[in-house]
Design a binder for these strands. Structure first.
Lengths: 286, 286
DNA sequence: AACCAAGTTTCACATAATGGAACCAAGGGA
DNA sequence: TCCCTTGGTTCCATTATGTGAAACTTGGTT
């Protein structure tokens, strides 16, 4: 897999919810730290770079292991994420995301366009991919269900940000890292604001190799009737096989799919969910 | 000091490790409760059936929402699992399970046999499915991964239990519910012990419509060189299309796949992981 | 044997969790 | 209209819990 853009984007100030509230927050922070390593990790490694003293960290790890959120190999002394998480995740995926509703629609879309399709939701200014359908020849690229990506240089990210209400958009934009992944990456907030305007006007967003060279995509937001952003849908291709012009031609069918998903999501008990992703963590406001 | 004292609270639990330790444990218990509903749930619903007083539960929910583990819709007042879980889950799936390593092998096996393939691991006596390949339909990550099933009446469950070391097996067996799903379900612990012996002797397990009528499967364990149980692999079919005899013929290829997975898992830094699922929670054990 | 690093346990102390009760909406009868 | 109930949120004195420096144990090295 790629490098670690994750840290750049995820570690933005003003969003640090970790050690803010109580013991639980701290414990979850420890969990995140283990997750960040992406591999089984030993006590000492975890210790430096952690804001907790030895004994405290140790107790947290014990608790988390005992709770099944982490597993601990007595042999090597390594801590890894536990299976309880996988179980919880299944429930989370099934209940708090568009994925289960969208699944058949995405299948159909994927079959129709013959390219990779992504379903994403917004998570604190970042893009969370909740489902993906591969084209016949799978392209090696950065994305999978559960993965997070930057909001400012992906099609789905821009499509969602553009359709956020003023206040939420401002907050989300302020959380962007604006790291230059490729020469085409937009790194200037002012230019980004214009780009969002344009996207909102035309109703869909492009990613012109802004995140990965050779990868382009077109994305449309999934909007509730009230106009709140539920998620976004994108079709991706490589410059070798397709072009932005060709992708633009797919907008009608993608938009139709998005509309179908939105309708179904609303009709079948799905309140306003999405903006909550932001409200939930922002904490700042009223 | 041995391991006698601490387990006063932990030893009894077959599956419920909840409020045993501290604030963190309680908070995670709340998380589980929300997950158990499988749908957005309101405060009052959560309140009854919860061991916590109103104010306490309220504070927990607030904390979890603030941490992004839950989301809260101010409109309907409903709590749902948060996106942070999906993110953590992705990491968990990728690092603490065999799935990523096994994926290409499963693809190949699935293509070869043309039937549904399951990859499972053990989680406290229960079966946790971490990946699945449907003969026709392509990938679906969290949709199926994360499901749990009984250990005593599934092929993968029996295959894994049979190859556990004495102590762990005894503990795991004592955790089985032995509910009669079908006429063929084994509900007698003594008979089950014999069945496990037979499975261990022959190296693979069958599920002869013990869990669902009309569904049969054959499963083999994935064992490390040292003999510890890493997981299990199964091929499933319907009585309408296949038979146990036919499935038995697939054992060599399944076993070869299991061996490949085990080898790769071991060679690429993957210690003894699996037994830990049990050790992690049981605590006891010599 | 003496040393060192990684991991684990102790214990006096202070922070953070607790939960009964008060409080604040909204319906919704009468 | 007013009163009353139900669902949700906030207070605050009490006390359980978490905290972390330091001591200790284990296992490996020189």
């Amino acid at each position: 897999m790629g490098e670690e853009p994750r840290d750049m984007t995820a570690r933005r100030e003003g969003d640090r919810r970790e050690a803010s509230d109580g013991t639980v927050g701290k414990a979850l922070d420890v969990l995140d730290r283990v997750a960040a390593f992406g591999r089984p990790v030993r006590f000492a490694e975890l210790l430096d770079g952690s804001p907790f003293p030895k004994a405290t960290l140790y107790r947290f790890l014990q608790t988390l292991v005992h709770q099944g959120m982490l597993s601990h190999d007595p042999g090597t002394g390594a801590y890894a994420l536990g299976v309880r998480l996988v179980r919880l995740a299944h429930a989370a995926w099934a209940q708090s995301s568009l994925a289960p509703i969208a699944r058949p629609h995405i299948d159909r879309l994927s079959a129709a366009v013959g390219e990779t399709v992504h379903l994403a939701q917004l998570d604190g200014g970042q893009v969370l991919y909740v489902d993906k359908r591969n084209a016949r020849q799978p392209v090696a690229m950065f994305s999978q269900a559960g993965r997070v990506g930057p909001g400012y240089c992906t099609g789905v990210g821009k499509a969602m940000l553009a359709h956020l209400p003023e206040a939420a958009r401002a907050r989300a934009v302020s959380q962007q890292a604006f790291h230059r992944y490729t020469p085409a990456t937009i790194t200037d907030p002012a230019a980004f604001a214009l780009e969002l305007e344009a996207i909102r006007a035309r109703g869909h967003a492009f990613d012109a190799e802004e995140h990965e060279p050779g990868i382009v995509c077109v994305a449309v937001p999934i909007l509730s009737r009230a106009g709140t952003v539920l998620g976004a849908l994108s079709v991706t291709g490589t410059t070798a096989r397709t072009s932005l012009q060709a992708l633009a031609g797919l907008v009608p069918v993608i938009r139709a799919t998005a509309a179908d998903i939105a309708t179904e999501a609303e009709s079948w008990r799905f309140p306003e969910e999405q903006t909550q992703g932001l409200v939930a963590r922002g904490g700042a406001g009223a």
